[in-house]
């Protein structure tokens, strides 16, 4: 498990999962704006963030997180620096 300490690492992780340029990882981005945000990639994003930040998402969080901004908010509430 790495110990990311800044939002830059969060952006890098998300961009890696979606295989997009980091500039596309903005708070308003979601399944409707990022073509790569498919159901499978959504699962990969949740799993990768769990691994990278040592946290876990609940069923409702996995189900309801539909934008980068929402993901950030939930992760910050769990103490992650993103």
């Amino acid at each position: 498990m790495s110990a990311p300490g800044a939002g830059g690492e969060f952006v890098r992780v998300v961009a890696e999962v979606f295989e997009v340029d980091p500039t596309e990882v903005v708070d308003g981005a979601g399944p409707d704006t990022l073509a790569a945000w498919t159901s499978l990639r959504h699962l990969q994003l949740m799993v990768t963030l769990e691994e990278a930040y040592g946290l876990s998402f609940s069923y409702r969080e996995i189900r309801d997180l539909r934008s980068i901004g929402q993901v950030r908010d939930v992760m910050r509430a769990k103490g992650a620096k993103v």
Binding site: L43, M46, E51, S56, F57, S58, Y59, E61, I62
Partner: peptide, 14 residues
């Protein structure tokens, strides 16, 4: 991974 299983039938951790 119970949460992932409930969400998408992903039973196992990575």
């Amino acid at each position: 991974h119970p949460a992932m299983f409930r969400y998408a039938r992903v039973p196992y951790t990575e």
